[in-house]
C-alpha cells in the first residue's frame, strides 16, 4: 500500500478545498494512467487486495456455518463417524448408514411422525400469518408517513419501532403477561363484567409476539423504500387522474418493491427459525419446530431427529431466501450496477 509515491506529502486543508475536485484527472495520476501495463498490474493488485480483505468474515462463516451444516446433513443421513462421533456417542434412537451414501431412516422416522407434521403445520401457519400481518401493518404505516406526513405519522413510526429496543426474551415475556389469564386484556374485560379471551400459551399468542418483535425492521425497510419514491412521480400520477388507491398500487408499491421483498424475507426467515418467542408464549403442544429442535437435541437426547427437523426448516427458509437474492439482483440490474 505504501508504494504510492505521493504518500506522506503535505495535505494541509486539502479536504475542505473544493477546487481540485472539479478537475477530472489529477496531475499525479496521469503519469500512471498512460502506461497500460502498469494500469493492468495495479488493477490486479487491487483485485487481490480486495479479495484478501473480504475473506475473513467469509472464512468464519465457511468454518462455523457452512461446514457444520454439511456435517449435520451427513449425520442426518447416518454418517456417524469422524467429527460426528462425539454427538453420535451419546445419541439415542440413531439411524446408522446402510448404503455408501447413508440412510433415509431418520428422515422417514421424523417425516412420518405425527407430532412433527402437526408442528410443521403450526410453524408454517405462524410464519405465513405473522409475516402477512407485519407486512400489512408496516405498509400502512409507511404509506401514511409518505402520503400524509405530519407529527401524527412520525409518532406512529416511532411507536412501531419501539420493539427494536427490547430484547426478544423480554418482549415474549411481556406479551405473555399482557394476554395471560390474569393479564391486562382479561382484566379490562372483567371491569365491565365480561369474560375476555385468554391468548397466553396459545398459537395466537405466538403470532401476536412474532408480530410485535418483527414490526420495527419491516417498518424501517418499507418506510425507507416508500420514502425513496420521488414526489414528481406521485404528483404526475395524481395529476393524470389516478386516485390515492391507484397511485399506491401502480406507482408507489412497485417502485418500493425491493425493500418490501427484503422486509418480507427477513421477517419470514426470522420467524420460521425462532425459538424464544414460541418457547415463552406458546403452548407445550403444538409448538413451532424451533422449540422441538431444542427439545430433541438436549432434553430427549435425539440429535439426529433434531437435525432432520433443522434440514426441513433450512429447505423452507432457502426457498424464502431465493426470493430475496432474486429481488436484489433485479434491483442491481435496474440501477445498472
Amino acid at each position: 500500500m505504501s508504494s504510492d509515491p505521493d504518500a506522506g506529502a503535505p495535505v494541509a486543508g486539502a479536504v475542505d478545498d473544493d477546487a481540485p475536485a472539479a478537475a477530472p484527472t489529477s496531475a499525479a495520476a496521469t503519469g500512471t494512467l498512460t502506461n497500460p501495463r502498469r494500469v493492468r498490474h495495479r488493477a490486479r493488485v487491487r483485485s487481490l487486495r480486495g479479495l484478501l480483505m473480504a475473506s475473513p468474515p467469509l472464512l468464519l462463516i465457511a468454518a462455523f456455518t457452512g461446514f457444520p451444516i454439511v456435517l449435520a446433513i451427513a449425520y442426518s443421513l447416518g454418517h456417524t463417524g469422524g467429527l460426528n462421533s462425539t454427538t453420535a456417542l451419546i445419541a439415542q434412537h440413531q439411524h446408522v448408514k446402510t448404503e455408501w451414501w447413508g440412510t433415509l431412516g431418520a428422515y422417514r422416522e421424523v417425516l412420518t411422525n405425527e407430532r412433527f407434521q402437526r408442528d410443521l403445520r403450526v410453524t408454517l401457519l405462524v410464519t405465513v400469518v405473522s409475516t402477512t400481518v407485519v407486512l400489512a401493518l408496516a405498509l400502512i404505516i409507511a404509506l401514511y408517513l409518505r402520503l400524509a406526513g405530519g407529527w401524527a405519522a412520525k409518532a406512529l413510526t416511532v411507536v412501531s419501532v419501539v420493539p427494536m429496543f427490547i430484547p426478544v426474551v423480554i418482549a415474549s415475556w411481556a406479551v405473555l403477561m399482557f394476554y395471560a389469564p390474569d393479564g391486562f386484556l382479561r382484566s379490562l374485560f372483567a371491569q365491565v363484567g365480561l369474560e375476555g379471551p385468554t391468548f397466553g400459551y396459545t398459537v395466537t399468542a405466538i403470532i401476536i409476539a412474532q408480530v410485535w418483535c418483527s414490526l420495527p425492521f419491516a417498518v424501517l425497510m418499507c418506510a425507507s423504500g416508500v420514502q425513496a419514491v420521488p414526489d414528481a412521480l406521485i404528483d404526475a400520477a395524481r395529476d393524470s387522474g389516478a386516485g390515492l388507491v391507484r397511485t399506491t398500487f401502480s406507482v408507489i408499491l412497485p417502485m418500493a418493491f425491493v425493500p418490501i421483498v427484503i422486509a418480507a424475507t427477513f421477517t419470514a426467515i426470522g420467524i420460521i427459525g425462532s425459538f424464544t418467542v414460541p418457547y415463552f408464549t406458546g403452548p407445550t403442544a403444538p409448538t413451532m419446530l424451533g422449540v422441538d429442535m431444542a427439545n430433541y437435541f438436549t432434553a430427549y437426547n435425539r440429535p439426529q431427529q433434531s437435525i432432520v427437523m433443522a434440514v426441513v426448516v433450512f429447505v423452507a427458509a432457502s426457498l424464502i431466501a431465493v426470493t430475496y437474492v432474486w429481488a436484489n439482483f433485479r434491483s442491481s440490474k435496474e440501477s445498472g450496477a
Binding site: 426470522g270 427459525g273 425462532s274 424451533g290 440429535p303 432457502s318
Partner: peptide
Amino acid sequence: AFPKMGLFVAL
C-alpha cells in the same frame, strides 16, 4: 438465511 435454531443445533 438459515433459521437460527437449526444453525445452532448443527453448530
